[in-house]
Nucleic acid binder design. Structure first.
Lengths: 199, 199
DNA sequence: GTCTATATCTCGATAGAC
DNA sequence: GTCTATCGAGATATAGAC
C-alpha cells in the first residue's frame, strides 16, 4: 500500500487549508480547482478523489477553519500580554477588530470573507457558516453573566462581523478605521470592559 | 432619429435596475450579461452600447440604488405610522432590520448583498460602496446630536449592516431573528429612542 | 492516489446586418 | 440602438496511464 490512510488525510488537510485561504481572498466563484490544488502542491486532476464537487469543498473549508485552523488569538489569549483580570473574550474582540485581522485577508475568519457567497449557497454551506457564528456567540457569552448575557453576546458578534465587513469593502482607510474603532469602543463600553488604545 | 436620447437613458435605467436586482441575488460572478439584458427586456449584444464592461456596470448599479432607486422606507417615514416625535432615523433602523428587508433579497440595500464582492473588486466599485455607507452614516447622524453623534451613527450602521449580513448567511431562521432583534434592541437603547415590538 | 490530457460547457466581448 | 451569430478564453468535471 504505497499511500496510507494517514497520507490521504494529510493531503485532504492541505487541500482544505489552501481552499480556505483562496475562498476568503477571491470568493467562491473567483477560485478555480486548479488554483486550490496548486496551493496544496498538487495538480488539478487529483481533486475528485477527495471531494465530490467544488460546492462540497466549500462547506468543508468553512468548518475546517472552525475546528482545526483558527489562528492563535481565537484559541487563547496572547501569552505576552495576558492579564487574568481581563476576560478572554476581550482579547478576542480586540483581535477580531484589529488592523492585523483586517489585512490578513486569506487567514481571516470566514464570517467576514464569505457572508455574501454563503447567503447564496446550499444548505450545507449555510449550516457550516451558522456553526461558526454559534461558536463565536458562545465564546462571548461565556464571559457575560446575567440575564442579558446572550443578547449582549449576539450584539458583540454583530459589531465584530459588521465592523470588519464594512471596513473591508470600503476604499477609504480612514473611514474603515472609524467603523472599526467605533464598533470596538462601543462594545467595550456596553460590556463594561475597560477601554485602552486600539491596535 | 428613431431613437431619442430620452429613450437611451430609459434603456440604461432598465439595465441598471435589472443589474442591481440580479447582483444582489446572485453576486457579481454569478450573474451573466445575458441575464441582465433579458431582465431589461433586451438581448445580449446591445449591452456594450451602454456600458464598457461588466465591472463598470457593477459600480454604476451600486450608485444607482443610492440616487434613484432607494425603496420607500429609506426616503421618508411611512405616512401611515408617521409620528413627528419619533426621529426619522428610527424608522430607517426599523425598516433596515425588518423581516421584509431580510426577505427582499433582490431589492435590498447593496451594503448587505455585495460586501464580499465589493471587497474583492476595483477601486471604482469600492468607492461606490463607500458612498452608500457614507450616506447612511449621514442619515443617522442627522438625528443624533452631541459630540458622540458621529460615533453613534457609525455604530448604528455597523449594527444594521452586520445584523442583516449575518441573518442572511445563516440557515437557521430563529438564530437569524435573534441577531436582528438583538442588534435592533441594542441600537434603540444606545440612542435613547424608545423601544416597541419589532416587525 | 496522483498525474496528464481532454471533453463539454458557459461566459464576456465583438462583428455586422438592419 | 438593437438584433443575431460567433469568437476565444477559461471553467468544471472525467478518462485513463502509472
Amino acid at each position: 500500500m504505497p499511500y496510507s490512510d494517514e497520507h490521504k488525510r494529510e493531503t485532504q488537510r492541505k487541500i482544505l487549508r489552501s481552499a480556505a485561504r483562496l475562498f476568503n481572498r477571491k470568493g467562491f466563484a473567483g477560485v478555480t480547482i486548479g488554483e486550490i490544488m496548486k496551493g496544496a502542491g498538487l495538480t488539478h486532476g487529483g481533486f475528485y478523489r477527495h471531494f465530490r464537487s467544488k460546492a462540497e469543498l466549500y462547506a468543508e473549508a468553512i468548518r475546517y477553519f472552525l475546528y482545526k485552523e483558527a489562528p492563535e488569538p481565537w484559541q487563547r489569549p496572547p501569552a505576552a500580554s495576558c492579564d487574568p483580570n481581563q476576560p478572554f473574550a476581550r482579547y478576542v474582540l480586540d483581535a477580531y477588530l484589529s488592523t492585523d485581522h483586517l489585512k490578513d485577508v486569506g487567514g481571516s475568519c470566514p464570517l467576514i470573507g464569505l457572508p455574501g457567497d454563503a447567503a447564496r449557497s446550499s444548505r450545507a454551506v449555510r449550516a457550516a457558516y451558522r456553526e461558526v457564528a454559534e461558536q463565536m456567540v458562545r465564546l462571548f457569552n461565556a464571559n457575560l453573566d446575567g440575564p442579558n448575557g446572550r443578547d449582549l453576546a449576539l450584539v458583540l458578534v454583530v459589531l465584530s462581523v459588521g465592523g470588519m465587513v464594512l471596513a473591508r469593502a470600503i476604499d477609504d482607510e480612514a473611514l474603515a478605521g472609524e467603523f472599526r474603532k467605533a464598533a470596538r469602543g462601543h462594545a467595550l463600553t456596553a460590556t463594561g470592559w475597560e477601554d485602552r488604545p486600539a491596535s
